[in-house]
């Protein structure tokens, strides 16, 4: 079945099996391996990409459901090679350890900032609730998003 959609700004026309998930097409047919499969059931968020600027779990979307839509993956965050503010903040704030959750975290954070450029801490926490990380305890991820949004407070993360 033919699938027409846009990925990272580029129009694509692909022959795609009905049962392919968006994640499979991105990784296998387009070689965009940034999005990862950490659970395949919508729980971990490692596969998060944007569809028309909304964060979705690409493991739960059939590829053909993206017909006519615009998909953005982590590879599309720095199209001209210049890092997005979120990417820079993740690097500088120590928000990356093993890095397996990072593409999904970045895309969820990106979707949030597109919608809400100055989110509160609570909004960041809820926006990233569907992205699990086992390495960082989320502490520096929160800081990085605040930093990229320009809402970072000096000092500690959050007072109880």
């Amino acid at each position: 079945m033919e699938l027409r959609f846009t990925v990272n700004g580029q129009k694509q026309v692909l022959e795609v099996e009905p049962q392919a998930r968006l994640l499979d097409v991105l990784r296998e047919q387009l070689g965009l391996t940034g999005a990862k499969e950490g659970c395949g059931e919508g729980e971990c968020g490692a596969c998060t990409v944007l569809v028309d600027n909304l964060a979705v779990n690409s493991c739960l979307v059939l590829a053909h459901q993206a017909r006519g839509r615009s998909v953005t993956t982590v590879e599309g965050l720095a199209p001209s090679g210049k890092l997005d503010a979120l990417q820079q903040a993740f690097i500088q704030k120590g928000a990356i350890q093993c890095g397996y959750c990072t593409p999904g975290m970045l895309m969820s954070a990106k979707a949030l900032l597109l919608r809400k450029p100055k989110p509160t801490e609570e909004e960041i926490r809820m926006a990233l609730a569907g992205n699990l990380c086992r390495c960082t305890g989320y502490v520096n991820i929160l800081r990085a998003v605040q930093d990229a949004a320009g809402t970072a407070e000096s000092g500690e993360v959050r007072k109880a």
Binding site: T33, G34, V74, I91, G99
Partner: peptide, 21 residues
């Protein structure tokens, strides 16, 4: 000193290839 990880940028851009990739 707190330098970032040597491969932080590769991880932030999706360039790094894990085994599954």
């Amino acid at each position: 000193r707190s330098y970032p990880l040597h491969d932080a940028e590769a991880k932030a851009t999706g360039r790094i290839r894990y085994t599954g990739d």
